[in-house]
């Protein structure tokens, strides 16, 4: 079996083991009232999928997360490039950025709800703020860290500043942007869900909060499992895109065997 195939088997086995332990403990050692059980949670999930009631919540949370993620990523990367290339601007704005970034996002959530209502907009704004800073800081450090010698090589060849941006600065910053985006994915979802916890009428965060208030651990854990699944799937997608975009980078474990003499 290929190493990749073996890895997938081990991963699946670990998941099955965890679920089995949970199922065994539930009802024998701990009252299912507190921890529910995998069979109960999956039955609940199956039911909400069949009657379709989950899809409204899922759609709202996904909408908030992806919209906020896209806006936050585009503005964060854009500002990262702008400030990375305009030293004066970066120096002027520095303390404000540090201060603004220091505010706990959860402290902003209630304000956003006052300003933008209990609908998806307030959550989108919260996600934007979360993603903006993560992508901004990584892009900014990437742009500032571009090797001056590489830029000079092109400058000496007669490249314009614009060509240097396109052919050196942007590709050199891609690994940093990728890291920023990767870190942002789970935080974006957390942002949307935290917003929904505070005030909402739809969404997975609302659902989890609502189920908890009914003391339905089955419903709450079901919602949490869905959230976890979304994080895993989207992270895998981002990893895959990153591996493709950064295929020029040496991979540590294969580096020595691929070196050609």
């Amino acid at each position: 079996m290929s190493p990749r195939g073996r890895l997938l088997v081990y991963r699946a086995a670990f998941g099955v083991l965890l679920l089995a332990m949970w199922e065994l403990v539930s009802g024998r050692l701990i009252d299912p009232f507190w921890i529910s059980s995998p069979s109960r949670v999956f039955a609940y999930l199956w039911q909400v999928v069949r009657d379709g009631s989950i899809f409204g919540h899922l759609a709202v949370t996904l909408y908030e997360t992806t919209t906020g993620f896209l806006i936050g990523a585009v503005t964060g990367i854009g500002c990262g490039f702008l400030l990375g290339r305009r030293k004066i601007l970066a120096q002027v704005l520095d303390p404000y950025i540090v201060a603004f970034n220091g505010i706990p996002r959860i402290a902003l959530a209630p304000l956003f709800i006052i300003w933008f209502g209990i609908g998806p907009n307030s959550k989108v704004v919260l996600v934007v703020i979360v993603v903006f800073f993560l992508t901004f800081f990584s892009t900014y450090s990437g742009v500032k860290g571009v090797d001056l010698e590489l830029k000079n090589v092109l400058r000496i060849m007669g490249a314009t500043e614009r060509q240097i941006l396109v052919k050196v600065t942007i590709p050199a910053t891609v690994p940093w942007i990728a890291t920023g985006l990767k870190v942002s994915v789970p935080y974006a979802l957390v942002g949307a869900i935290v917003g929904e916890f505070i005030a909402a009428s739809k969404g997975l965060g609302y659902l989890i909060n609502y189920q908890t208030s009914l003391f339905s651990t089955t419903g709450a854990l079901g919602g949490i499992l869905i959230v976890a699944a979304i994080v895993v799937i989207s992270s895998e997608a981002i990893n895959w895109a990153e591996a493709y975009l950064l295929r020029w980078r040496p991979r540590e474990e294969t580096r020595t065997d691929r070196e050609v003499y």
């Binding site: 090797d147 590489l150 000496i156 060849m157």
Partner: peptide
């Protein structure tokens, strides 16, 4: 900077995200 003068640095300074041929032809691309 004068495009009539070329400069070969001590460090190779190839662009790591470009293949060999893409690195060699970059000045013509510019």
């Amino acid at each position: 900077i004068n495009p009539e003068i070329g400069y070969v640095t001590q460090k190779d300074n190839l662009l790591p995200w470009r293949t060999l041929v893409q690195n060699v032809e970059i000045a013509l691309e510019i």
